[in-house]
Write a protein that binds this DNA or RNA. Structure first.
Length: 563
DNA sequence: ATCGTAGGCGCC
DNA sequence: AAAGGGCGCCTACGAT
């Protein structure tokens, strides 16, 4: 029988059945696959191994909760960068097969012929590649196939772990692969559960911004024309301007005596109050945003049964941030009152404070910056040390991490280099690699691809600008990527530690977690979320003395959180 | 018609 | 205070 051990490969298909493979046994478990997995989870607490998100999705759909896992594709992407990959490619990689010869799904018919005389109950073909039809689902068709699939899953993970440890003896890569795997599982659950929405409130907000729900296309056009008219009526010689065309808007403003390089909001915002046209245009854009992106169509398409659902990826961004669709990551502030805990429940919202400079202190090991993290407001000691205002210090630190070169922060940059040389050197080194087109690596071991080096010929100015852009990108990726890794360690710990309270994570937002919890458990859950920060830092931070802080509140609506 | 790109804005 | 990094999603537009 199965014994307590670390890795336990899982071939799970609710309809077909379930097989598991450990180092000592391989079983096709008959009966109810859901209760079987549940029992094994409770009794053995294994680290479940699977190939990709499809297993996480199946577990989520079955309502199964497991804690520890290893997602082979997630671990692979961590090492090769943000490129898409597949089971077939990772298999080929692990077995030293030529990636060019990986069979495609479209070739299945041809392969079936070429396969004649071979045992199609074997997962791999004579040439060593995995059978595409197995990957597509044929692995689950019989007990023997399920067991073979579980076995090769375990073998693949084991050899992947061996390769990964040979590359990184610190164990950091392995640790990142674990937390990133759990984050991928969390994404499957976020996708299934969605974010609680008070639909009545959502309807009210959308109605206020874009007018009542149109019943016909004509009504929709009329509402659109009404919004446009608020701006166009201010034009002295009456003109027909397409407000949705930036070039037209720029020309319109020039005719009104405003010559601007572009029409971006921050630029117009500085002119607010100087010209009614500017104010009207800014209001038009806010309303237009709600009407087009977060209006009736958005509500119909993404909100159902009191939940806003979108797709979640755990590391889609270049530097490994989580991404989400359907507005989950960019819901305008005026719409946030619609995000409301369900009856009898509360949200616990926690966001990591000043996460990027604290992460910079951790990954660089800069002693002076580590010292600054001891303060709840890190920018204060930095300002004191530089002899500048807090605001200037903040802009300078952020500018150093984003690659700003001009403006007020440029002066303070000198001071940063003198006071925090270790941190600044780390950033500068990353920027230099980026300019040269060389990949950089986050502290957790994620490869960030720089996509092609310097172009050999052509416009020198363009090449210079592209190199500078890559430099800024690399500089930021190191920090943003590390922050994303730390955040995910925290998020998956919260998922596990808060489960006894009946709490579920309902939103992950780069440095912010929103958890829904039964009303009575609010305070305990909030305390546990704060405690999990220290635990996450213990797991993740290369520097034990770096302090991470959070702002936590127990609220009914997302909008109630502090500004 | 369908595609990719650019400008723009929402959030972090 | 400056306008730098990331993503998703909108519209318009030029190329195919």
């Amino acid at each position: 029988m199965l014994e307590p051990g670390d890795l336990l490969a899982l071939a799970f298909d609710r309809e077909a059945g379930v097989a598991v493979a450990s180092r000592t046994a391989c079983l096709d478990l008959s009966g109810d696959p859901v209760s079987v997995v549940h029992e094994v989870e409770q009794e053995l607490r294994p680290r479940w191994v699977w190939w990709d998100r499809s297993t996480a999705d199946r577990l989520a759909a079955a309502g199964l909760v497991v804690d520890r896992c290893w997602d082979i594709l997630i671990a692979h992407r961590l090492q090769v960068g943000g490129w898409s990959t597949s089971i077939a490619e990772v298999w080929a990689h692990l077995h030293g097969l030529d990636p060019q010869t990986v069979p495609q799904m479209g070739q299945m018919d041809l392969l079936a012929t070429a396969d004649e005389g071979h045992d199609v109950d074997q997962p791999s073909r004579p040439d060593g590649h995995l059978r595409p039809e197995w990957i597509a689902g044929a692995w689950s068709e019989s007990p023997v196939r399920r067991m073979r699939w579980a076995s090769l899953t375990l073998e693949s993970a084991s050899s992947q772990i061996a390769q990964l440890e040979a590359k990184d003896s610190s164990g950091r890569l392995r640790s990142t692969a674990r937390s990133e795997s759990a984050a991928e599982l969390l994404c499957a659950e976020l996708e299934r559960d969605g974010l609680p929405i008070d639909e009545t409130e959502a309807v009210r907000i959308i109605g206020d911004a874009s007018g009542p729900r149109p019943r016909t296309y004509a009504e929709e056009d009329a509402a659109r024309a009404r919004r446009d008219h608020e701006v166009l009526q201010l034009l002295d010689p009456p003109q027909d301007v397409n407000l949705r065309n930036p070039a037209d808007v720029k020309a319109m403003l020039r005719r009104s005596g405003l010559d601007l390089p572009d029409t971006r909001a921050w630029r117009l915002e500085q002119l607010r109050g100087t010209d009614p046209l500017i104010d009207a245009l800014l209001k038009w854009r806010k309303d237009e945003r709600i009407a087009t992106t977060y209006g009736w169509g958005w509500l119909d398409e993404n909100v159902a049964g009191g939940r806003l659902r979108g797709s979640w990826t755990s590391a889609d961004g270049a530097a490994g941030r989580m991404t989400a669709s359907a507005g989950l990551h960019n819901l305008p502030a005026p719409m946030r009152p619609a995000v409301a805990a369900e009856p009898g429940h509360r949200f616990v919202r926690a966001d990591l404070g000043q996460i990027e400079p604290r992460v910079l202190a951790a990954v660089s090991g800069d002693p002076a910056l580590i010292e600054a993290t001891r303060e709840a407001d890190l920018y204060r000691p930095v300002a004191h040390r530089l002899g500048v205002s807090r605001e200037i210090a903040k802009v300078a630190v952020l500018g150093a991490m984003y690659g700003a070169t001009t403006g007020e922060s440029a002066g303070a940059l000198q001071g940063l280099q003198r006071s925090y040389p270790t941190a600044m050197q780390l950033l500068e080194h990353a920027a230099e690699r980026g300019r040269l087109g060389e990949d950089v690596f986050t502290i957790g071991g994620r490869r960030v691809r720089m996509g092609g080096g310097a172009s050999p010929d052509g416009d020198i100015e363009r090449a210079r600008s592209a190199a500078a852009s890559r430099g800024r990108y690399a500089r930021n990726a190191l920090i943003q990527g590390a922050a994303a890794e730390f955040f995910k360690v925290w998020a998956v710990l919260v998922r596990r530690r808060l489960r006894p309270f009946g709490a579920t994570v309902v939103l992950c937002l780069h440095d912010e977690l929103l958890v829904q919890v039964p009303e009575a458990a609010g305070q305990e859950a909030a305390d546990a979320m704060v405690h999990a920060i220290g635990e996450a830092a213990h797991h993740w931070s290369p520097q034990p003395d770096v302090r991470f802080v959070a702002d936590v509140s127990i609220i009914r609506r997302w909008s109630e959180a502090k500004a």
